[in-house]
Simulated scan of single mutants.
Amino acid sequence: MDTMRAARLHVPSRTLTVEDVPKPAPGPGQVRVKVEAAGVCLSDVHLIDGTLSPLYLEGETVTLGHEVAGTVDAVGEGVTGWQPGARVVLQAGESRDGTTYTRGVDYDGGWAEYALATATTLVPLPDAIPFDQASIIPDAVSTPWAAITGTGDVRPGEAVGVWGVGGLGAHGVQLLRAIGAYPVVAVDPAPAARERALAFGADAALDAADPELRAKVLALTGGTGLAAAFDFAGVPAVREQALTVLGPKGRLVLVGLTAHPLTVANGTLFSYLQQQIRGHYGSDEHHVPQLVALTGGGRLDFSRSVSGVLPLEEAAEAVRRTETKEGDPVRLVLRP
């Protein structure tokens, strides 16, 4: 039996090991992809530490990795339009009978030498986009893109705020600038994160602990406040702070995940100003092709986003660096 290396999480014990497993064979409608690069996300860290748990996983063990790029290796029965060697990036999940299943969570993902994918979840990848940069487009880029263009409905010229300039927030800053939002105000307690925000295109980067934060945001927006604020941190205090600087009809978009409640300190003012709180999760299937096209056309550049590339055998080390923020990474990538 052919085998391959894969980084597998045993969910009950939250144990991650790189081990030999059978090389999967594509079934009807499936494609086997030779993985060239797979991103390491904070969600992977949360799966390992127990903060998150799979909802639909069959069995107790799963190969992690929902950010994946590679080449077609073999196709299953009934698959047309894909040939071995084609460069592809994989959607981070798929819908089955109205239920969303996440790759690397509810079924085996891309922290492996090979990965299976339903043919409809493959997106063609131009030669101009390196695999490591392409791999992070699903989720690290597509999630803020969907939050900005969909849930947040940001328009050119609108004043916006980004709380938390990590892997998602840094791309949020870049994408907000790309669509013409102004000013783009980044908020983060870490000096390195604020510097990164400016490098990624923020017009201002403020310390969340600054007692003058509200006054500074109002000064930057001509006294009106923010049209939209994005919480990429998933922290209650962040959400409450963002509400204080929203303008009339402003939208607070919750992208970061937390189980803690959100408190609206002044419900009367919130209603009077007709403000809104909008929940957001992931992206839709059309967002990844949009981003691939924009990147291939030179409108977006993610060369600064890959903070390091590690071999698959060092998956645990990549997780540690992501969790501890050692080296202040935007995204680390595994290469089988």
Rank of each mutant, 00 (worst) to 15 (best):
A318L: 07
R5W: 11
N266F: 09
H171R: 09
A202C: 11
L220R: 10
Q133K: 01
G76S: 04
G222A: 09
T244S: 15
I137E: 04
D132W: 00
V235N: 11
G250Q: 04
W111V: 10
A181V: 08
V187T: 08
R299Y: 08
G250H: 03
F232A: 12
L312T: 05
E58I: 13
A227M: 03
D49K: 08
W163C: 01
V306I: 15
G225H: 01
A316F: 01
V245H: 00
G201D: 10
K249Y: 10
A134W: 02
A219D: 15
D203K: 06
H280R: 03
V306L: 07
L243Q: 15
G223S: 10
A227W: 03
R335P: 00
K249D: 03
V154F: 00
P144S: 01
V18I: 13
A147S: 09
A190W: 08
S43L: 02
A237W: 04
A147E: 04
Y281R: 13
P211H: 12
G225Y: 00
G109D: 05
L57V: 02
D301R: 09
A209G: 11
Q174H: 13
R177V: 09
D108P: 10
G152Y: 06
R278A: 01
A69K: 05
Q241R: 11
V75C: 13
D132N: 14
V333P: 00
K249F: 01
L198S: 07
V160E: 08
A112Y: 00
G78P: 13
F232L: 05
P54L: 09
K23G: 00
